[in-house]
Structures are given as C-alpha cells and as structure tokens.
Computed example of a mutant assay.
Amino acid sequence: MSEPDLELASRRAIYQYVANNPGVHFRRLLDELEYAQGTLQYQLRWLVDEGLVEVSDDGQYTRYYPAAEFDEADRTVMNALRREYSRRILAHLLADGPLTTSELSERLDKARSTVSWHLSKLFDAGLVTKERDGRCVIYEVIDADRVTYLYTIHRQSFTDRVVDRLLDLWEGY
C-alpha cells in the first residue's frame, strides 16, 4: 500500500482499526472510531474499491479484513471467533475434545436451544462436525490448528461482554 492511498487521517484510522481488529463489523467501527456514519461508509467503500480491505458476510454482520491477509477459510473462522458464544463453544471444543450439546450448554450456562443454534451456525460454516450417538449429537472442531492459531494471534482484539461489563463497573468507582 503506497502512502498516497491513505493520505486522509480518517482513512488511515479506519484501515488501521481494521488491520488491528480483523473481522470487525460496521457498528463496532462506528462506536469505536466515532466518525459520522456517512463518513465511515464512504471511507470503507473507498478502501474496498481500492483493494485495501476485503468484505465478508457472516450471515449476521458484514465484516472487514485487511486485503490479502486472510483467505476464505481464515475469514470463516474469524467470523465465528468474533461472535462471543461461538468463540466460547469453539474454545470448549478445542480444550476438551468432542462434546454434546448438553455438555456445552452446561459449561456455558446457556439454554440448550441457544447453544444448539450457535452449533448449527458453526456446522453450516464448516467449522465443526456433528455425529449422532443415540439421542445425543457430538460436535468436534474440523480444523483445530487453524482455529487455535487464529484465536491465539488475534486474541487481544476479541472483547467479551462480561469483561467489558466488569471494566465499566470498575471505572465507575
């Protein structure tokens, strides 16, 4: 990327935020960077048109990545890691091997239907396998090395709402 490409401070700031937080979605950019919505939309569109940023749709959010740094499989993993409960499910599956919906529900302290919904999204994205064992369905991460690597490298850019809430309370004192 040449210097003139990012001569505007707003463009540089947006690109840098995307580079530091791959898979960030528009609302998060809007909240963190505090640009007007139109300015952010325009500059993101410019960065995409110039081939500096790539877009990925995870079915819920449009996510932004620095161009040529993530292949499609990486973007799929990062899209999942950007969702809090998908990230937690993947972490449990990686740490403790194949688990059932009930086991994950208990570990996450979430309703089985909620966990099942997230697991179906992970399955549809090709990130987990599922195998029926009687009345149970057992899930396992398909490419554990890729998920572990991307989680480890980008861990600092993931925010957990629980942690955010605790920090907000702490700052109130």
Rank of each mutant, 00 (worst) to 15 (best):
A68P: 01
T76S: 15
R82K: 14
L30A: 14
S2M: 02
D57H: 07
D71T: 12
L47T: 06
V141D: 08
Y149A: 15
T62H: 02
L150R: 04
D49Y: 06
V77N: 04
E54S: 13
K110N: 07
R27G: 05
S56R: 03
V147N: 01
E54I: 10
R161T: 09
R11I: 15
E171R: 01
A13V: 10
L93H: 01
G23P: 05
D164A: 15
R161V: 04
N21V: 12
I138P: 00
V55Q: 13
R63A: 10
V115K: 01
S86W: 00
L90G: 01
D160G: 15
T148V: 05
R75I: 06
L94M: 05
G172N: 01
Y15C: 13
L108Y: 02
V147T: 03
L119T: 03
V55Y: 01
I14V: 14
D109F: 06
R107H: 02
V128T: 14
E69Q: 15
L169I: 04
D5L: 12
D74V: 12
V18C: 07
L122W: 04
T129E: 14
I153D: 06
L33A: 10
E140W: 03
D58I: 08
R112H: 09
R83M: 02
F123C: 01
T159W: 07
V55E: 15
Q156W: 11
G172T: 05
V24W: 00
K121A: 13
R161P: 00
Y35K: 08
V53S: 09
H118T: 06
S10W: 06
R155V: 09
C136G: 00
E140F: 04
W170N: 04
Y42Q: 10
R87F: 04
L30Y: 15
Y139K: 06
R11C: 14
Y17H: 10
R27E: 05
S56C: 11
W170K: 12
W117P: 00
Y35I: 14
L8G: 09
G97A: 10
E50F: 07
R82C: 13
L167E: 05
D58Y: 05
T76M: 12
Y65R: 02
R75F: 09
Y151V: 06
T152P: 03
L127C: 10
L33F: 10
F158N: 11
C136E: 01
R82M: 12
D143R: 09
L93G: 02
E69G: 06
L94Y: 00
S120G: 07
D168W: 00
S105A: 15
L30I: 08
A9K: 14
S102L: 08
N21K: 04
L122R: 03
L99M: 14
K121F: 05
D57P: 02
L33V: 12
F123K: 07
D74T: 10
R28K: 05
A9I: 12
R27K: 03
E106S: 12
V115Q: 01
P4N: 09
N21G: 02
L150I: 07
G59S: 08
I142H: 03
K130Q: 14
V48T: 13
A9C: 09
L108F: 13
K110A: 13
